[in-house]
Design a protein around this nucleic acid. Structure first.
Ligand SMILES: [Mn+2]
Ligand SMILES: [Mn+2]
Ligand SMILES: [Zn+2]
Ligand SMILES: [Zn+2]
Lengths: 138, 138
DNA sequence: ATCCTTATTGCAAAAACTTGCAATAAGGAT
DNA sequence: ATCCTTATTGCAAGTTTTTGCAATAAGGAT
């Protein structure tokens, strides 16, 4: 009974296959404390799964985002990073020193409501990176 | 007196040099109606400036963002695109059909105010891409 | 336990993007 | 007009990310 079993269960119920590659990558994301880049995931995953291709890591991470099990973040540098988080949140990063703050999604609730009202769109689970200057760097 | 002269003037006042490459790329961005990818800019720029390198396009676009003359957008596919717009705005894209709506920044004013109050950060000119489902695709 | 279907992976090649460094040329000084 | 300084470009090489396709193996059926 490993820690990612509920997620693999969810995959199976959605009609997707549970492969060793997906298991390992889910395990890594679940135990990471922050965002991981594809090459970080690859380096870690390769330890338990020699022969794993970096291509597969890219595809699996994007697959997990499509299914809603993982979230992608676009850092200030434009590079992608991934995480699994049960809290819908966003980020605010200081463009000068890189300090990062997490923004609970509840702070965007009224924005979302007004956007949905004015556009007729239904917003999905976004994971936004705001840039700014922290108190020290201003 | 070409159309990008005021921007090249601004560059010069900031202490940067005005090169044919920067002129051409500014001209292209000013006449584009939407976002352009680096390779689109490259293809157009090469017509007036044979010998131009793609590297230079990447560097120039990023340079224009740093100086605040251009804005970068991270589309739903994660690929970068650039534009010059005098209106601070954001985007809302349908994850299903790709339909895209522009969101005037004024709709985020109160969010920005509340984020600045709660975090002590000063937010900068962000150019955010929200994802959702349009009325038809829901 | 074996077979089937086809989703998923490995592998190779391409495309997108970045970096380092020597050659060039913009803009200021003479 | 010529010279100087050094920001900027071209060029080559490297890294990151995407794509196509044949080989593999997950999961359901027999
Ligand atoms: Mn996050
Ligand atoms: Mn835009
Ligand atoms: Zn800071
Ligand atoms: Zn749609």
């Amino acid at each position: 009974m490993s820690c990612e079993s509920d997620l693999t269960q969810e995959l199976r119920e959605l009609g997707f296959r549970v492969t060793p590659q997906r298991r390992v990558i889910l395990h890594i994301l679940l135990h990471a404390n922050g965002h991981l880049t594809p090459s970080e995931v690859f380096a870690l995953a390769q330890e338990s799964l020699p022969g794993l291709m970096e291509t597969t890591v890219y595809r699996t991470l994007e697959f997990l985002v499509q299914t809603g099990l993982a979230q992608a973040a676009f850092g200030s540098n434009g590079k992608r990073a991934y995480e699994i988080s049960d809290e819908h949140h966003h980020h605010l990063i200081c463009r000068q020193c890189g300090k990062e703050i997490e923004i609970p999604h509840v702070q965007l609730d009224s924005l979302y409501a007004s956007l949905e009202a004015s556009t007729q769109f239904k917003l999905v689970h976004n994971h936004i990176t705001f840039l700014g200057l922290c108190a020290e760097c201003q």
